[in-house]
Structures are given as structure tokens and as C-alpha cells.
């Protein structure tokens, strides 16, 4: 029996969520087909799920993340994210702007803009007013405990602080999905824990789908589900 998004199984009420990411037989190769990065990937991720993708270097995990974020295009197969077919030939800038928040390993902040300005960058392309941009960015920076560093340049911040700015930037457009590529990779373990906890907190509070690429077990195991990749294939997908 099903009632909207609620299903009763064995007498328990279970919330059934829609797939926000649907991938079928996805392939991608580089260097004219000499390097196979993705070799028939099949994957479904539900809305609000926290999934980590693990695997050694060259296993294809970052390539898969780039496909989900429409930063790169697959050679064949199907990929649908937040209801958008990413195999269509078009510029997915608006999709990225409205649906995706990226957190990169090296934070990738603009060095000559202040922390506050860096967080506002994605909003420049939207209809949000200047006042709201300033307010929203300040609120987010407060929430990652950087409210007192608004006018600092990124170069004046520690690695962990920069990553927190990058997380604030990823959230500023209220994305449906946060894609984090090795967000703790360049940090020491203490700072890595802080960032990981921050991402988990945001995932729970904002009910945002979080897909995180890592090669560290303890980071991967903090997710709802861990996907292991090897040589461009998903070798297993386990509930953590």
C-alpha cells in the first residue's frame, strides 16, 4: 500500500524518496578511447541520500562526479539528475547554478576576492538582489563559523577555513545536490573531521543530497551508502 511518498511495510511507515540521480550503462573514455574512465556505470541515488564514492586513483570516481555535475559529458548511456537529462547537447550552466553545489579538494576560491565576495559569486548569475546576496552570504559564513572573517582574502585563511568558505559558496544557491570531490583530501585529520561533520550537519539540516568522493575509509563510512569503484566500474554498493 502506498500513500504519496509514504509506504507501509511490515506495519511500519516508510518514507519513499524519489531518485534524484539515475545512471544507466554510462561510459566515458579519454585519449581517443585509449583510457576507459567509466565502463558501464549503473547507479541510482535517492533524494536526501548521503553517498560516498570510494576507490583508488584512476578508478573513475571523480569522472563520475563530474558527469553527475554536468561538468563533463558521457560517451554513451543515460544520466538523469534532478529530472534533467544530461545526455542532451546543451549548456548546463543553469542546471549547475540551480541544482548543484560543488566542493573541490583545493577549495578553488578566487584569491583576489574577499571571503564574503567569494560566497556571493554564484548569486551574480541569478535574480537575487544585491542586499539579499550580501545577507545570504553573511548568514552562511556565520553558519560555518566564519562570520568574523568576511572581509579577509582567502590567502589569509587556513586550509580548513578556506574549505568552509567553499562549502558556504556551494550552499548559497540552495542546491538539491552537493558534490564534494575529496573535500578533506588536503586537510589534516583534525580539520578533515571538522569539515566532514559540517557536511553531515548540512546534509541533515538542509535535507540536501550529498555525494562525496574520497579515498579515505573513515570519511566514506560516515555516509549512508558507500560505493566502491575500480577500473571505471562499480564493484559494490553497501549501506554503511
Amino acid at each position: 500500500m502506498s500513500d504519496g511518498n509514504i509506504e507501509v511495510r511490515n506495519g511500519n511507515m516508510i518514507e519513499i524518496k524519489e531518485n534524484i540521480i539515475e545512471i544507466k550503462d554510462l561510459t566515458k573514455s579519454f585519449d581517443g578511447g585509449n583510457i576507459t574512465a567509466l565502463d558501464g556505470i549503473n547507479l541510482e541515488i535517492k533524494e536526501g541520500e548521503f553517498v560516498s564514492i570510494m576507490g583508488p586513483s584512476g578508478s573513475g570516481k571523480s569522472t563520475l562526479l563530474n558527469m553527475i555535475g554536468a561538468l563533463d559529458k558521457a560517451d554513451s548511456g543515460q544520466i538523469k539528475v534532478a529530472g534533467i537529462d544530461l545526455m542532451q547537447s546543451e549548456d548546463f550552466s543553469k542546471f549547475r547554478l540551480n541544482k548543484i553545489g560543488f566542493v573541490f579538494q583545493l577549495h578553488n576560491l578566487i584569491p583576489n576576492l574577499t571571503v564574503h565576495e567569494n560566497v556571493q559569486i554564484p548569486l551574480i548569475e541569478t535574480d537575487v538582489t544585491d542586499e539579499e546576496m550580501i545577507e545570504r552570504a553573511a548568514e552562511l559564513l556565520n553558519s560555518v563559523n566564519l562570520g568574523n572573517r568576511l572581509d579577509q582574502l582567502p590567502t589569509k585563511l587556513s586550509g580548513g577555513e578556506r574549505q568552509r568558505v567553499a562549502i558556504a559558496r556551494a550552499l548559497v544557491n540552495h542546491p538539491s545536490i552537493i558534490l564534494a570531490d575529496e573535500p578533506t583530501g588536503a586537510l589534516d585529520s583534525r580539520m578533515g573531521d571538522i569539515i566532514l561533520n559540517l557536511l553531515r550537519e548540512i546534509h541533515q539540516k538542509e535535507n540536501v543530497t550529498l555525494v562525496l568522493v574520497t579515498h579515505e575509509d573513515y570519511v566514506a563510512n560516515s555516509a549512508d551508502r558507500v560505493i566502491n569503484m575500480m577500473d571505471g566500474k562499480i564493484v559494490d554498493s553497501n549501506i554503511a
Binding site: D91, N108, I121
Partner: peptide, 16 residues
């Protein structure tokens, strides 16, 4: 180049 990549990644259009 990297900065432009970031801007494209966070949703800036080619025209922008």
C-alpha cells in the same frame, strides 16, 4: 584558467 573553470562549474554561462 582554473578560476574560469570554477566560475563555469558554479554555473556561470559562457556569455557571462
Amino acid at each position: 584558467t582554473r578560476e574560469i573553470g570554477v566560475l563555469r562549474a558554479i554555473g556561470w554561462t559562457r556569455q557571462r
